[in-house]
Each structure stands twice: as structure tokens, then as C-alpha cells.
Design a protein around this nucleic acid. Structure first.
Lengths: 352, 352
DNA sequence: AGAGGTTACTAAAACGCTTTTCTACGGTTT
DNA sequence: AAACCGTAGAAAAGCGTTTTAGTAACCTCT
């Protein structure tokens, strides 16, 4: 039992063949067609016997391919990124690719530096999750929830038009007219689209959005505290509201806490809708009504798209541009009929 | 502006020097001591100007080092693994290492295969999180919550003696004597130690552990459902209990749901203690009392230990064996005084 | 018998770097 | 003047593959 993995050369030597032949056979290249089956068998048998494993670096050096992709997320330990990663991983590993992960924690210097480090490591492509992206690289790039149109990058995005509509429609149908909103942090890549579509949908349903009914998340922690603080600001303005649409589930959880501490019951006094449907959303008490982003699926679609582009470099059917994913409203326990429901004509128009 | 990154040879050519010299200077080897500063400056300037980046594969091929480690977790998207990974990443990146992640989802074939794949990719070391480990490899291995004594692997573990004691002491001091338990899945690497220490601590405090007050988690999902079902089994046995100590926060959340559905209030009728203190624990309603494992810290200690071992291969101070981390009881809203508290002499003995 | 075609391989270059060994040269000692 | 030394750098081997371009031996056909 040799401890060191043996090289192609050594294997060839033991076989009394040249490294070239062995390599050709093992990679079953066309050139090896003329090699008799018997010899091939001998080679495979020896490879198995000596547990031959081609050296990855040598191979990558030669082929200029690493079978590795880079994944950038704001923070591995937040539920959103983690779910997307899970989908990415699923697809990637099954195709023989590995991936590096880095968390940039929204630090501009890291967002700048990590792509360089990835390039240095010769990744074959990269995926940026919830990360503002404006670089055009020579390797394929796919973003999840990126909204910039950049040459060479494909964005996998939620259908935000739908997302805003289903959420607002749900609240309107429950009779809510005074709806407060928690807007995402400025650095979150979904903030803008999400918000503009909320404004659009609210307009469609004839819901007014007053300045004092909007609070923006501040700070880059992934904790519900941010939502708590935002809700506090909302409450402080004393403008009444019967429903709250939060930027994400995490902030919804914090907001619910704040509402409770202000002696408002959820959902009896205030209905709350979250966004994302992270795992713990279903296990809140009461369980959170939310707009589901199929994060895992988005991850695996991103990975699939990336691999396709790696394999068929910028040819026909190259999917630069956008891939849109449908959201789904998950109604659970944090929304209910408004106490003094105001029927909305528009709502019925849209509910057919 | 050249698009292709240029090689050392090309850089040397532009400088009118040999590749050897440039390499020596750039890696500031001792051999380059005799090279005048002026030349060195020229080299550095050119490197910067042409954005020279050494090819990673060539370098790794030569040096037989990859500056990459492998990380195995049950599932990236579960909060436990994610927190540990976050700590691992912190330390690793700052030291210039990257890491591959794989989720084995407790599938035995994957637990078997992934280490091989890592080896094939020439990782310099590997970290296994909450994963049964029995392999002795030629690269350093560090586990987080691994409990097997294996040559060449260092285990970073929680002090389970303490963990069981603080939790049970807390409940006993609140007057609980009838305590139910949810035990971990058989495949979870902490299940055994955790349980034996609970038995020990319960013994110390004179708490009887009846068969029908113990339910074991079943199934490999990371969802609270498992805890829900376990709690249902506990309830079905009709043996009364005033407190429940769950295997982890996730199962505690599910259990709380089950208790509520059985018209038991938490904490008034049943106090619940979780384990781990994952992020969402603090945002339950009421917030979960739990035994905190400093997961992030455990991750970064694991990474630190691994790098130390990679750098100083099996020499003096090689930390094979165990590194123990202290847990901390976080008292929040799911525990309170038992309705008919039974004072425990032992409890007071231990509370000094 | 010589041209041409297969068959079964091999030699050698290339990928981009590191590192050890070597050289050439000017200056200093003895 | 011969021996020695420090300086400044170059040559070359080697890491483990893959791949292109051969080549030697044999066979077939006319």
C-alpha cells in the first residue's frame, strides 16, 4: 500500500507503457481508438488497483479549466443566502463542479476584492447572490436578484410585479386600506425594484402610500432588530395602519415584536406580510404570511444557467439577460380581515 | 490593455530579465537578497502595471499546496451549519485560504465520497461539522461536534457536562421536577454525548427520567416538524411534565407548536429549553430560553486549529485531541416557575 | 516488390510557476 | 598575477497532465 498517490508516469511505468498512452485511454480520447481492448482493460485494471487519481492542478493547468465556480453572498449564515446556496450546490456538485463561497457583508471593498480573488483562483464562472453587480468579466457571471443590465451577466430575478400585486391584493381583499411598509436597506439589491413595484401595485389598487407609512431598514445586520426599529419609527409617527408589508421575513419578525410591545395584536390589530418565506417563517407564532421566493430553485437555476454558459461560451442561446421566477403568496397566521374592512372595487376587479 | 492575464515569462521578457529573477523577487526569497533595490522596484512596478497575477494552478502544482480547505456540513441551509461556516470563513479568508463546502444530508454514501473528492482536489485540510467521522487521512482534519477519537483529527466540542448541568439546574431552580426530553436523531453526532450528560446531570439533581418522558427525533429534515412530532408522542403517553428540554432550537419550536395545539401554554404550563441558540431563537414568541453553543466561535476556532496544523505538520503542540468550548444558558421567555414548584435540596446545593 | 494503409503506440512540447545550481564579471587580497 | 569573493542574474529541471505529431511494424493490394 503506497501512501502517496501515484502519478500518471509511474502508473505508465508499471504498465510498461508511455504516459501518453495511458492518458489517452483513461480519458478515452478518439486517438485511443486504435488501442486494442485488451490493453485498455489492462490500463483500467491498473488504474483501479493503484487507485490512480489524476492530479487536479496539473490537469487544470493544462486545460485552463478548474471545474470550480465562485459564489458571493452577503453572509453565509443568513437564511436567504443559505437557501440559495443550497440550490446552487445541488446542481453544481451533481455536475462535478465545486464552489468557493465568500461573504462580503455588504462591504464595498470586499465586493470589489473578491471577484479578483476568484479570478486569481481561475474559477470557471461566478454567481453573485443579492449583491450589487456592475462588473463585466471574461468569465460567465450569473446573479440572483441582481438588477443591473451588464454585458456577460445573466440575472435570475423574481417577478416583482407579481410579488407586489399578490401581496397587496391579499391585504386589500381583507379590507385593508391603511398599509404601512418597511423598505429594504439601500444596499440590498432588491430594494429598488421591490419598492417601485409596490408603489405601482398600490396605485392600481388605489392604496395611498403616505410618507409616514414607510420606514426603511437601516444597518447591515441580518437580525430582526432592524425590523423592530423600523416598526418603532412607524409607530412613532402615529399615523394609523391596519396592515404592514415588510421587506423580508426577518424584518417582519422584528416588526411583530415591536407591534406587540406597543400592545397591538398581530393579526387582529395589524396584519403583517413578510417576504422570502425563509424556513423559520412557518414556525413563528402565529406563522408568518409571506411572499415566497423559491430561493432554492433560484439557486439551482442560477447554477444551471452558469454551467450552460461555461460549456457553450457565448454562443447561440446564450442567456444573457434575465430569467424571471414566479413568487407565491403563502397565507398563514399573521394576516386577517381588517377590523373595519373597507371594500375595494379595484380589489374585486383583480380577484377574478 | 491586454485581456489575457500575462505570465511570468512574458513579464520577465518585457523587463529584459529571466523568469527566475522575477519570481525570486516577487516572492521575496532570500536568494534575491543580492538583487539591487532598483531592479526590484522595476519588477514590482511592472507587475503592478501589467496586473500580474501568478497562475494559481501552476503554483499549486509546483508547491503541492492549494491554500484551500474542504468543509463538510449536513446541509448549508440549516442554521447550525451556517453559523459554524460563518466562523470558519472569517478566519480562513483572512489567512488567504478559500474553502469548498459540501452538504452530505446525512447520506452515508456522500459522507464516504466527499472526503475522496476533496482529496482529489488536493485540499490542504478539512473540517467536518456535525458529521460522524472515523477516517484517518494524511491531511489534517478538524471536526466541530465530532466525538470519535481518531488519529489525526482534532475535535472542537462543546462542554456537554456544563451544558446539561446549566439547563437542568435552571429548570430545577424554577421548581420543575417532571421534565420531558427530546433526544437527537441517531445520526446526529452530538446525540449520544448530549444525552448521557443529561442523564448524569438529571441524576445529580435527583430528577427521574422515565422512559415515557423521552422522545427521539426521527427523520433527517431540518424542520421543526420533527420536534412537533416528538412532542406529540410525549403528549400521547399522558405522563405529565412541566418542562421540556429539547435537543435543539428547531425541535423546540416545533414542540412548542404541538404543546399549544394541545392547549398547553408555554411557559405557564410547560417551560421549554432549547439548545444551540440559533438566530431565530431570540425572535420566537415568546423568545426561546436555550443553551447557547457559540457556533461562530467554534467555527473560527476549528479553522484556526486546522491552519495551525497545516502549517506545522504534526510537530510539537499538535492539537490532536479535543478543544472544549463553554456553553451558556440564555434565559428568555419560554421558561418560568413551575405551577406547583417542588423545592429541590440538590438545586440549592448547586446554586451557590 | 513497392506503394499505401492500418495498428499500436511513443516523443516531446506545452501549461506557468519555483528553486537549485551555475556563470560571468568586476573588485579585493596575498 | 593568481586566488578569492561578492554581486547580479540566468539556465534548467521539475511539478503531472494533455495533445499533436510522429514512427515502426505489419498487412494488403496490384
Amino acid at each position: 500500500m503506497s501512501l502517496k498517490p501515484l502519478s500518471l508516469k509511474e502508473l505508465a511505468e508499471r504498465l510498461g507503457l508511455s504516459p501518453a498512452t495511458v492518458s489517452l485511454v483513461i480519458n478515452n480520447s478518439r486517438v485511443a481508438d486504435s488501442i486494442p481492448q485488451e490493453t485498455k482493460d489492462r490500463i483500467f485494471a491498473a488504474a483501479r488497483k493503484y487507485k490512480y487519481r489524476p492530479n487536479f492542478f496539473a490537469r487544470s493547468l493544462r486545460a485552463q479549466r478548474s471545474f470550480t465556480v465562485g459564489v458571493m453572498v452577503p453572509e453565509v449564515s443568513d437564511g436567504y443566502s443559505a437557501s440559495v446556496m443550497s440550490g446552487i450546490e445541488d446542481f453544481l456538485l451533481q455536475e462535478g463542479y465545486f464552489y468557493f463561497v465568500v461573504s462580503h457583508r455588504h462591504r464595498a471593498d470586499l465586493i470589489d476584492e473578491y471577484p479578483r480573488l476568484f479570478l486569481e483562483r481561475s474559477v470557471d464562472g461566478l454567481i453573485a447572490v443579492d449583491t450589487p453587480w456592475s462588473l463585466s468579466l471574461k468569465i460567465p457571471v450569473v446573479t440572483v436578484s441582481g438588477h443591473n443590465q451588464v454585458k456577460g451577466v445573466t440575472n435570475v430575478v423574481l417577478d416583482h410585479v407579481q410579488a407586489a400585486e399578490v401581496a397587496i391584493e391579499h391585504l386589500v381583499q381583507l379590507g385593508h386600506r391603511q398599509i404601512a411598509f418597511i423598505k429594504g436597506q439601500v444596499f440590498s439589491s432588491d430594494t429598488e425594484v421591490r419598492w417601485s413595484n409596490i408603489e405601482r401595485a398600490a396605485g392600481q389598487f388605489g392604496i395611498p402610500i403616505g410618507r409616514s407609512l414607510v420606514a426603511q431598514l437601516e444597518g447591515d445586520s441580518a437580525s430582526p432588530d432592524l425590523g423592530y426599529e423600523a416598526a418603532e419609527r412607524l409607530l412613532k409617527s402615529r399615523k394609523p395602519f391596519t396592515a404592514l408589508f415588510a421587506f423580508n421575513d426577518i424584518s417582519a419578525m422584528g416588526a411583530i415584536q415591536a407591534l406587540r410591545e406597543a400592545k397591538l395584536r398581530v393579526p387582529e390589530d395589524v396584519s403583517v406580510v413578510g417576504f422570502d418565506d425563509i424556513q423559520s417563517a412557518a414556525y413563528q407564532n402565529p406563522a408568518l404570511t409571506t411572499v415566497r421566493q423559491p430561493l432554492r430553485e433560484m439557486g439551482s437555476i442560477a447554477a444551471e444557467t452558469l454551467l450552460r454558459r461555461i460549456r457553450r461560451p457565448e454562443g447561440e442561446g446564450c442567456n444573457n439577460g434575465e430569467i424571471t421566477i414566479q413568487p407565491k403568496l403563502i397565507v398563514r397566521g399573521t394576516t386577517c380581515r381588517a377590523k373595519n374592512p373597507i371594500p375595494s372595487k379595484r380589489a374585486t376587479v383583480f380577484s377574478n
